[in-house]
Design a protein around this nucleic acid. Sequence first.
DNA 1: CCTGGCGATACATGGCGCTT
DNA 2: AAGCGCCATGTATCGCCAGG
Length: 279
Amino acid sequence: MLKHTFIHIPKVGEVTERRLWREGIKTWEDFSSYDGLSLSPGLEGLVRSHLSSSQRALSGGDAAFFERWLPSGELWRMYPDFSHSCIFLDIETTGMSHGWNDVTVIGTYDGYETNVFVRGKNLRDFPMYARKYSMLVTYNGKQFDVPFLKAKFPDLRLPAAHIDLRFVTHRLDLKGGLKGVERLLGLDREGKLQDVDGFMAVKLWHEYRRGNQAALDTLIRYNLEDVVGLKAIAERVYNMGINKLPIPVQPLEVNPRPRLNLPYDPELISWLKDRYVYY
DNA sequence: CCTGGCGATACATGGCGCTT
DNA sequence: AAGCGCCATGTATCGCCAGG
């Protein structure tokens, strides 16, 4: 998709990009053979030089370049070009507020394997691990996960680009939180895991601290279900995004939600569900 | 329960090309 | 040269709504 993109160039907005497309300039390559019809000479030069930087950034895997120049609502366009170095992430905490609450679990998925970092075990390994990636994908992570992680690890270096799927789905009229979006896309998770939410994640952590090992298993399973779901969502919303554009763009091959083979305790979930009042 | 990024909206500004 | 429309961009304000 980036090779079709012009909106990251200064002085080029949605209208100009669509005009270029309409005139048959659908890729950066098309622009090189452009014989100067409807852009002013100054703008043409600007585009030309910005495209050569873009080409360099793309071949060099420079995600920071695109994070810097793309309007935030169009960051989703980066996904296929950087998915080879992409990390999906979701955290669990003891509550909602940075000042008062702590990170308990960090779950990640790179498209091949999941990783989990647990408070009191290996949470400290996360910053080193996170450095390897160019792109981060979360749901509401700009609000929640990233500020929490930065508070926890002050000199944390996260991937240069961050796609927050919350805003992508919202613009596509997919609303209702991560689980709601999964449901709308037919990506529901199995059985009892459906009943776990963030509030229960807090309770599961406390159960674990009281000595219940199965509570940690369940918390981790829940967390990783969220994480792997992000990839399935990203692929689908990307394809929905390109379908709204007036030019044909190569769609992404869509994968099913990965099936996790990790233990959890369905009875504990039922017990917690009955035990606490939700509002 | 708390928090804040973001989209939507409105408005001002300024560059540019075109017309008269 | 002046006026105009088009478009990008900046600023400000407001309310939504997602996370544990």
